[in-house]
Design a protein around this nucleic acid. Sequence first.
RNA 1: GGAGCGGUGGCAGAGUUGGUCGAAUGCGCCCGACUUGAAAUCGGGUAGGCCCGCGAGGGUCUCGUGGGUUCGAAUCCCACCCGCUCCGCCA
Length: 427
Amino acid sequence: MIDLKRLRSEPAAVRAALARRGDAGLGRTLDEVLSLDAERRVILAAVETQKASRNTASQEVARRKKNGESADDLLADLKQSGDEVKRLDQQVREIDTRLDALLLTLPNLPHPDTPEGGPEANRVIRTWGNPSEPTEGCRPHWEIGEALGLLDLPRGAKVAGSGFPVFRGTGARLVRALANFMLELHTGEHGYEEVIPPYLVNQTSLRGTGQFPKFTDEVYKIGDDELYLIPTAEVPVTNLHRDEMLNEGDLPLAYVAFTPCFRREAGAHGKDTRGLIRVHQFDKVELVRLVRPEDSEADHQLLTAHAETVLQRLELPYRVLELAAGDTGFSAARTYDLELWAPGVGAWLEASSASTFTDFQARRAGLRYRPAPGAKPEFVHTLNASGVAFPRTIAALLEVHQQPDGSVRIPDALIPFFGRELIEPLS
RNA sequence: GGAGCGGUGGCAGAGUUGGUCGAAUGCGCCCGACUUGAAAUCGGGUAGGCCCGCGAGGGUCUCGUGGGUUCGAAUCCCACCCGCUCCGCCA
């Protein structure tokens, strides 16, 4: 949710910032918001004046009744005044409803430093490792996974549908090892508290992080109970402190959660969907931070570094992209994507997205803190990053570390969790 | 699923024969006094949102949520949500 007061006081700046997202419809929404807001304040002034005089007269009634005097002469006027209040209140309510609905559809303002333009303007800000050219015997992960007996895509499709992978045997063990490796890293070295949140959430939570009301198509719904499968742990974890008043000393809050994620990926079929590249269910370790506004830019760098550490320890070459204003997600102000190089498929695969949401989610979810004892409450800033998503990481891991003999080398950092140095071909 | 009880300020917890109740009291926190310093003690202060105002300040709304009754609702009525206890069912 953008700040209505700011929109009112500097409409041109807000309009210019939103325009950078490249959606012409946003300007019209702004116009409507502004005009509804103006209308609302006129009616509000009227109804509050009316209420003020009603309250005064009402107190007079109370005083007289207490003294046993008659107040009948006031009651008729008050009745009329009450009806007028009710009428105006109703108008304000209607405007509020429309205003809220519009405000909920407006995306966050992009950070001023984000590149101008759409996806083509995304900027590579650094690359780590040596992305190798695809070589002769270099196979894609689905072939490796099948050959080594790690993956069973056909049976996943049978049981649930396309995009629901089955990891089996050593593959399942690899998933478990990765989960433990990442959780140990983030809880031990990076100072995150591990949480296991609900995997189903209500609509209020989805509105808090920004998936609702605009992106209902992306989320699986459990119709009978009005619950939704989480598309990312960001949703339950960010909402942990919804409508709470935090103390300055509580911040920063840093949570790490290993959860499955469920995404409908409506309309995405046929594009980049082979193997593990785009699936409906996947595991992810997610990092979520609630911080003081003045810390959020530095924290964004820190958070990104935490996610990068995972890839570095797994010895997987990657690049960091700063997303352009037009490609930055709805709730985010600034996002760094971490893309793994997958030599088998010859493509960069997004394994993490590290974003700062400034106060956008905090406004929607009521995440506030008191900067100092006795001070006015302020909204926190929220940030999150995948640390990291499993399927594409596994894809890159298989493709990068595949050996000429068909085996896959396990990177040193993972060996203690995996228990072996090599995944051998099936005999 | 059934029955009962309950949802009040940062926290705990009064208040339900409708009217100076946005709300006692305690804790916490802030300021001050006492003290070499601290503790203890004493005095004072301390909810949030919205609107108007340069400001000082003023107005209004909020006692789970949404409606209703009424001149007036934390208090009465209706619906819903959530929590606790017991029963039923169940991994």
